[in-house]
Structure formats: C-alpha cells, structure tokens
C-alpha cells in the first residue's frame, strides 16, 4: 500500500469526509491507480486509529460517488470503468468543485461583485492554466 492517508481527528471536519477527500485526491493524482486495491476497512481503521464504521462509511460514499467499487469478500478497488482515467477525472473534479465553491463563497461574503470574482478567476486561470499559444 504505497499511499499513506492521514486524518486529523481533532478537526471539526468529520473524519469520514477527510478520508473521502484524501482517497479522491490520491486517485486524481494517480497515487492510487485504476483497479488498485484499497486497504481493508479494518486495516485502515487500525492504521489511522479511527472507528471502523467511520472508515466503512467513507468507503460506502466513495462507492456511491463511483470512485471505488467493492467486491464482496475481495475488498475495495479503485474503479476501472472503460477509460482508465475516468475515475481519476471524476475524483479530481469533486475535490476541485468543493474548493472553488468555498472560494466563491468567501469572495461573495467579502462583498465582491460577480464581475470582480470573474476577473479574479480569469487572472487565476491565466496564471495556472494558460491557453496554449
């Protein structure tokens, strides 16, 4: 198991959400490859010293979101549906959507108008995702 997850139990963010986020990031970055096996619920619970039902809940949601699939008796695997990249693209989109949503909310609550937020987004896109010349 090459990927080491870490959770901060003292955080106000539910532990199962922390696990979901990290699995999605790992899948998006290819740290967890398509078809790769995840640790069992019990193993991850012991590795992180968190409740097994909490880990099971994270796995259920990940399965629901189409990131992993569970074969009964064999364990959980990163989903390999058609294109090898499908799961990683979907997972990356989920993580990014959450962050972008938060950023827009912050901008709005600081009193920025839509036009100003759009402008910020465009400058951010130009910086990190410039269009090919």
């Amino acid at each position: 198991m090459p990927v080491i997850f870490t959770v901060d139990p003292r955080s106000g963010i539910p532990i199962y959400l922390q696990i979901i986020e990290q699995v999605k990031r790992s899948v998006a970055l290819g740290l967890l490859a398509s078809g790769e096996q995840l640790p069992t619920v019990k193993q991850l619970a012991l590795d992180l010293t968190v409740n097994p039902n909490t880990v099971a809940r994270a796995y259920r949601d990940l399965e629901h979101d189409g990131v992993i699939e569970t074969a009964s008796g064999r364990g959980s695997f990163v989903r390999a549906n058609g294109s090898a990249d499908a799961a990683s693209i979907a997972a990356g989109r989920d993580v990014a959507r959450g962050e972008i949503d938060g950023a827009v909310r912050t901008a709005k609550s600081l009193g920025l108008a839509r036009a100003a937020v759009t402008e910020l987004f465009e400058s951010s896109l130009d910086r990190w995702l410039p269009e090919a010349p």
Partner: peptide
C-alpha cells in the same frame, strides 16, 4: 484504542 477498534471490527 487499537484493541478497541480491532474488537469492534
């Protein structure tokens, strides 16, 4: 704690 988690599993 890990013994408890192991039992619960």
């Amino acid at each position: 704690l890990n013994l408890m988690i192991n039992e619960a599993a």
